[in-house]
Computed example of a mutant assay.
Amino acid sequence: MSKIAAIDTAQVHLRAHPDLVVQGAKGAHDKSDFLLVRVMTSDGITGFGEVSATPLWSGEDGTTAEHFVRRIIAPALVGAPLTPVGALESTMDRLIAGNPFTKAGVAIALWDAYARTLDVPLVEALGGPYRREVPIKLSLSGDDEHLRKVQAAAASAGFRAFKVKVGLGVDGDVRRMALAREIVGPDGFLGVDANCGWTRAEARRAIRLLAPYDPAFVEQPLAASDLAGMAELRGEGFPVVADESVFGMTDLVRVVEARAADVVSVYVGKSGGPGRAVELGRTAAAFGLGTLIGSNGELGLGAAAQLHVACALPELTTEFPSDIIGAHYYAEDILASPLDSDGRFVRLPDAPGLGVRPREDVLSLFEEKS
């Protein structure tokens, strides 16, 4: 039986592509500190994962994640059987409260190693594939010339579907959406994402004023805990997407009971790993909720995990593109070979595990930390 022989980490610090920086209700996302995770097994198999965390949003970052992985998680998991991966995830839960993005980085590496041990793509280990490509979108933010610059850069990368960052003041939100609609045209796909930035009164006013610009959906219009308010907004004519309101299964149950959303944005990071993300998406579907894959600005390894999860879900809301943006968002990629993405779709790699691996110079960072 394959056992975990070692777990190590390497930090990577990257800035967003200057023309694509997201400015939302929770601040600007212009850089990210990632923690890469490597799991090595007794059979000589290596799996890779990625902690994609931002302190402002999740309370986690590469430094806190590295401490937890090296000092607490690795000593507990090394020597344990690689399977079942779910048991290893439960061990992490007993060791550390919260910190789902940190646990997800380790879980991605464990699932990658497990699928490589089986010599199958991760999507097959997760129960798929139900599809081999996923439609994607990119966020538009800022005002006036900045928004035009972001959209032009996104369009040059192939993107044709977008969501506009709002929740920064209703009047400015409406002007931003009006400009975005003008730029992408009457038939272009546009949703809006408030990132918890509106009060109930602001949300009702904003939705009424945004209606002429035909938003495809309204994402997280209210505070994560205001499920009653979100349920009321579902009657305003546009699908409501729950994002910050749903991290794990307990949150999903609350959203279902409150009838607070039409669609749930599932993250590999929020869920605590690929297996749990698939479980969350399947449960949402069982209760009649749509599912899309949300983003915390993942790099190549995280984006690959997002993609495998999306393709392992029996029901994915493909009319609302997912947020698997990967290296499009950053000034450089860390993968030896990038994911196959043209801005409209991202496609599964045909290789075991995640189907991707870091560049050689990135791999050398693990050796420096050992």
Rank of each mutant, 00 (worst) to 15 (best):
E202H: 12
I324E: 03
K270A: 11
S245F: 02
P55K: 12
P18W: 13
F238H: 10
A5W: 05
T199H: 12
R359T: 09
T318S: 14
K31C: 01
G59K: 09
L138F: 15
L348K: 07
A286S: 15
A223F: 01
L179V: 07
L307W: 02
F68D: 00
H17K: 10
D323P: 02
I334W: 05
L335H: 05
G62Q: 01
R347N: 06
G191R: 01
R282L: 01
V164I: 12
P81W: 09
R148Y: 05
M40T: 08
T199F: 03
H328Y: 12
A76Y: 09
L82R: 10
A178L: 02
A242D: 04
L335C: 04
V362E: 04
T318A: 14
L227S: 05
L14E: 11
V356C: 09
L110C: 06
L365V: 07
M92Q: 13
Q23T: 15
Y267A: 00
W111E: 07
F189D: 02
F320T: 06
R282C: 12
S90D: 15
P186N: 12
Y267F: 07
D30P: 02
A286W: 04
A76H: 13
R181A: 03
A157I: 11
S337D: 13
M249Q: 12
A201L: 03
L168D: 08
K270P: 03
G355N: 09
R254H: 10
F34R: 03
V263P: 00
G273W: 03
D119S: 15
G272Q: 03
